[in-house]
């Protein structure tokens, strides 16, 4: 598989959220606005690339029997780095994402890529895999956040889109709205794929 293919698979064909349905807990919880979605996506991408790089480099050193605890230590370290840096330099974002930053540790997307890809591949493919998967995850969170923000608050990235007469559909930024938006987007993607075939 070429590197480009390797990168592109995360965007659509093996998109973490819409195709693998991995990491749904943070996805559904933080996507109340497009901005939160992008921030969470970028934080996850950083952790994913970092853990893929380290896991790939250490893949011959780590014995199979202790690989899971080793992966978790590596992932948790990257998450803590992200959390500290965010609190120090992006305080408002840190407050908005709150509890979901530490929860990146248990995002099965990251452990999944470490186990399924990074631990079996050389450094370069593993890095590209992390970038592709992370970008796909970020895009998915952005789209989900944008849809929910648009209908739930009538804004997009904080700017009012509809006139002042628009009555926000509060349901869309409440938890059920996450499932509804997710379901509709999945259906749209499946329809698109079915047509193309």
């Amino acid at each position: 598989m070429s590197l480009l293919e390797n990168f592109k698979k995360g965007l659509w064909r093996e998109n973490a959220v819409f195709r693998l349905l991995l990491g749904l807990c943070p996805t559904l919880a933080v996507t109340t606005s497009a901005e939160n979605g992008v921030a969470m996506g970028l934080a996850t991408t950083f952790v994913l690339v970092g853990s893929n790089v380290v896991v790939s480099m250490l893949r011959k050193v780590i014995p199979g029997k202790v690989r899971i605890p080793a992966f978790i230590v590596i992932i948790a370290s990257f998450v803590t780095v992200v959390q500290l840096c965010m609190e120090a330099y992006f305080y408002d974002l840190y407050k908005a994402l709150g509890i979901f930053i530490p929860l990146i540790v248990v995002n099965c997307l990251i452990l999944g890529r470490a186990e399924a890809f990074a631990s079996k591949n050389r450094l370069l493919p593993a890095t590209v895999d992390g970038l592709g998967m992370g970008t796909g995850f970020t895009l998915a969170l952005f789209v989900l956040g944008a849809v929910r923000e648009l209908f739930g608050s009538g804004t997009l990235l904080g700017y009012a889109v509809f006139g002042s007469g628009y009555q926000p559909l509060i349901l869309m930024i409440l938890p059920p709205g996450a499932f509804i938006a997710m379901g509709l987007l999945l259906a749209a993607m499946n329809l698109f794929d079915a047509r193309r075939r």
Binding site: I62, V66, A70
Partner: peptide, 29 residues
């Protein structure tokens, strides 16, 4: 012995890196 050694080294490395990041970000936080 190898299992213990590898896991210990990884956690020690992680601890070292985290303590460095913590000391850099303590003031700004």
């Amino acid at each position: 012995l190898r299992l213990v050694l590898v896991l210990t080294l990884i956690t020690a490395g992680a601890g070292l890196i985290l303590s460095m990041v913590e000391s850099v970000t303590r003031e700004p936080i």
